[in-house]
Structures are given as C-alpha cells and as structure tokens.
Write a protein that binds this DNA or RNA. Structure first.
Ligand SMILES: [Mn+2]
Ligand SMILES: [Mn+2]
Ligand SMILES: [Zn+2]
Ligand SMILES: [Zn+2]
Lengths: 131, 131
DNA sequence: TTCCATAGTTAGACTAAGTCTAAGTTATGG
DNA sequence: CCATAACTTAGACTTAGTCTAACTATGGAA
C-alpha cells in the first residue's frame, strides 16, 4: 500500500499535514462525501483546526491533480469520489447512498449523436433500489 | 396549439397570471434556463413585479405537476426543461449550452446491475462539442 | 352585497454551499 | 539567518434557494 504522502507527491501536490488528512479521509471511504462531510470528518485529526477554506482548497487541488474526482448526482452539494477510474453511479433513492458501477457493466454508448454532436465523454446516473 | 391556461388546468394547477407568464417563458425556450434566468426573463411581463419567491414556488409547482422538469448537469444551479418526455442531455463544453437527445438515440441500458441494484431509471449526460 | 376561508403573492430575512481576502504560519533555497 | 513563496486561517462575502409574515385575490356561504 502506497502512502498518501507518496500518492500526493506522485501527482505533484505537496503533502502538507492538512492535505494528507483530507486526502486520507476521502480515499478511505466509499460514501462519496460532500465537502461538509469532509470538514466534519477531519475535525480533530490535527493539533490545529482545519479551516473550511483549506478543505475546499484542498478538495479542488486534489480534483485538479486527478487524485479524486467530483460527482454531481443531486443539486445542493457536489460529492467527492476516491475512484478516479471511468465508472458510473447508482443512487439508492431510499437511502441516498451512491454506489460505483464499473464502466464495463454498461454497454458502450455512441461517440456521436444525430450527426451534429461529437461526444467526448458521458456520465450515467442510475436511480433505483439497492439490496 | 393548446393555451398555457388550459395546459395548467389539465395538470391541476390554477393558472394565475404569474404562473402563466412563468410557464410560457420556460415552455417557449430550448435554453434550459435557471430560476434566475426565468426571474429576469419574466420581469416586466406583468403590471406587478413577480417576486423571487413566486418564481421558485411556481417552478416547483410546475415540476411537481409534470408540466416541466428539472435537469442537473452541473453544480451551482438547477435548470428547467420544457421537454418532459424521456430524453437525455448533451452539454456543449465550449458554450455550456444544453441540447436534448431523444430517448431512442441511445441504446437501452440494463434494468439491473451486478445483481443487487434494481434500476428504476437513469439519466445520461453527454459532454462534447456541438457543430 | 357582505363575510369569510383559502389560496396565492410579495418583500425581505434567512440558510447553505462555496469563494475570496487579508493576515499569519510554514517550508525552502541562498 | 533571511527572504520569498507556498500554505493555512478566520471570517467576510456571494449565490442559489427557502421561509416568514403581511398583503391580495378568489370563490362560495349567509
Ligand atoms: Mn465543486
Ligand atoms: Mn430545485
Ligand atoms: Zn464513484
Ligand atoms: Zn431536456
């Protein structure tokens, strides 16, 4: 298991204590936390308080560096995802929980639509009930 | 062409002047406007000022009644869509414009995933360049 | 007609997600 | 040791959206 410090270094992000704690939190859950979840989750993990600005700055930095990704399944807040490989999402409409769906569970979609739309990528959100 | 008053009546929504003006605005554009767009767009259409609260209330009422639908393609604000039939969306990544993609332009996706996820519905957002 | 109840609208206060700012702290290279 | 740059902090600010309390329109009873 590669350390979070190494991971951040490999992505060109200087591994400050705050960044390591924040990255650790997002990377070690499958819950697709919001920024607010992260803020609460990392509180008390360091002798200093981790400010709201640092949480948002760090999440944006980690997304830009490709360490994590954002996912928008519902309005209100964006969520963060440790899984940066191509995949889709399933939202359990009862609990609100979000599950990863591997890319190849789903048929490939066309790379061009109606002649005039050149597709660079797509995201599928499934809604339903998980068992 | 059925009148907006009739349309609202058919959906069980009392067609007040404010609601008619707001519904007309959303129904007569393909631009997928935000609530703020609607607020600006209907300003001055009536002798009274249409308040922010009425715009948001009316949009929510129209969505609940099935007259229009919401679409979330990016974080920040939700958009409103005159097209309530099943379809997908294409986001032009240069301009930000959103285009409707007919349901049957895209292959059907599975109704069950990995055994444990029963799919009730799905939404696909394509990203790319329109010509 | 008048009265009342209900539904709808309004301005503005309030909340929640996120950004920005200005000052303080922490590395780093010379 | 110092200068500079990078980072972090608290809190102000912005934006999207909801809530509140007062006001207005409507549609029957009486
Ligand atoms: Mn974001
Ligand atoms: Mn909404
Ligand atoms: Zn994911
Ligand atoms: Zn649409």
């Amino acid at each position: 298991m590669i350390s979070t410090e190494e991971l951040l270094n490999n992505h060109g992000v200087k591994p400050t204590p705050q960044r390591v704690v924040i990255a650790d939190f997002v990377l070690s859950t499958h819950e697709h936390p919001t920024a607010e979840d992260v803020l609460k989750g990392v509180a008390g993990q360091l002798p200093v308080t981790i400010s709201r600005a640092t949480v948002y700055n760090t999440l944006n930095t980690l997304v830009a560096a490709g360490v994590i990704r954002e996912v928008f399944t519902e309005p209100g807040a964006c969520r963060y995802d440790a899984n940066v490989s191509k995949h889709h999402h399933f939202v359990d409409t009862r609990t609100g929980r979000i599950f990863d769906i591997p890319w190849d569970e789903v048929p490939q979609l066309p790379r061009s639509l109606k002649g005039r739309f050149k597709v660079h990528g797509y995201e599928i959100t499934f809604f339903g009930e998980a068992t």
